[in-house]
Design a binder for these strands. Structure first.
Lengths: 156, 156
DNA sequence: AGTGAAAGGAGCGATAC
DNA sequence: GTATCGCTCCTTTCACT
C-alpha cells in the first residue's frame, strides 16, 4: 500500500469526476488528455486507494418535498459513554444528514433535512432531546441557499 | 411541464442513485424491479424534470490534503446591495464550499474547506473580511466527523 | 405505461511500445 | 509508465403489447 503522490493527471481526473460523476471513461480520458485505458486504470487505482469514496446522484431537495434544512447545535454531558451513545443515536436518524464534533461552546453541529416544521419538531423533540445526556439544543433554519457544493477546491 | 407525482418506482430509483450514482442501468433496473428500458426512460425523465441535478464523485478530503473544515458565521450590514455583493464575492471563493442564509442572529453560515489553518487565515482575513459590509465573522472548526451525508431521507 | 430485440458504443483485458 | 487491438457487455432506440 505505498502512496505515491498524485500527479497532475490524477488531480484532473478527480476534479472532473467530482463535477460530473457519470462521465464515461472515454470522455474523461479526453478531458484529462489521456487515452482511455490508462485513464481507467488510474480511476480504479484512485477508487481502491480511497481517494474516491463513492459516487452519488445529487437530488433536488425542494422538488422532493424537503423544504426545511436546519443546523442544530447540541451540547451534551461530556464523557466517553455519553458521546458514544449520542453518536450511535444520531447515526440512526436519517433526517440528520450530517453530524460534526465542533470546537467552541457547542459540542456537536447537526444538519437536519425534513419536509416541514412539523417533521422538524418531531426529530428535535422526539428524537434528539430523548437521547440521554443531551443538555442543550439550538436550531437555526436555512432561509436561502447561496451555494451548495460537494466539490473540493482542487483547482487551487 | 406537468408534474405528475412520483410513483414508488421513481423513489426507489432516486434512492438507489443517491447511494450509488454510478450504478449501471441494468443493475439499477434490477434493484428497483424494472426491466432496463423503462428504467432508463424514468432516469432520463427524472433528470430532465430536475429531480436529479447531477452526479458527483465523493472524494476523501483528508487524503487529498484538506485537513481543515470550518463553519463560519457571518454578519453583514443588511441591505439589498450589500447582500448581493456578499453573495457574489462568496461565489468566487472556491474554499467556501457552501453558503446559507440563516435565521437567527448571524446572517450567513459558510462551510469552508482548506488544507490547514494558514490557508484558513488567508481565506478569512484576506477574502471574507475584505468584502464590504462584513461586520462580524465567527469561526468554529470541525474536530471529528460523525456522519457526512449527501443523501436525502427518502426511506421515510 | 412495460417488453424484447437489434445496433452502436463503451468497458476492460491482453498485448506491444 | 502509455497506446492499440479486440471481445464482451451495456446502453439506447425502435417496434410491439
Amino acid at each position: 500500500m505505498a502512496k505515491p503522490a498524485l500527479d497532475a493527471a490524477d488531480l484532473r481526473i478527480l476534479d472532473a469526476l467530482q463535477r460530473n460523476g457519470r462521465l464515461s471513461n472515454v470522455d474523461l480520458a479526453e478531458q484529462v488528455g489521456l487515452s482511455p485505458s490508462p485513464c481507467l486504470r488510474r480511476v480504479r487505482d484512485l477508487e481502491e486507494a480511497g481517494y474516491i469514496q463513492g459516487y452519488a446522484a445529487l437530488l433536488d431537495r425542494r422538488r422532493l418535498g424537503f423544504g426545511v434544512v436546519a443546523f442544530v447545535e447540541v451540547k451534551i454531558d461530556q464523557n466517553a459513554e455519553g458521546d458514544a451513545r449520542f453518536r450511535q443515536a444520531v447515526e440512526r436518524i436519517p433526517e440528520v444528514v450530517s453530524c460534526f464534533v465542533m470546537t467552541g461552546t457547542m459540542d456537536y453541529l447537526l444538519q437536519v433535512v425534513v419536509p416541514d416544521l412539523d417533521a422538524f419538531a418531531e426529530v428535535s423533540m422526539r428524537r434528539l432531546l430523548q437521547i440521554p445526556g443531551v443538555k442543550d439544543v439550538r436550531s437555526s433554519f436555512v432561509l436561502d441557499v447561496v451555494k451548495h457544493g460537494t466539490a473540493l477546491p482542487l483547482g487551487r
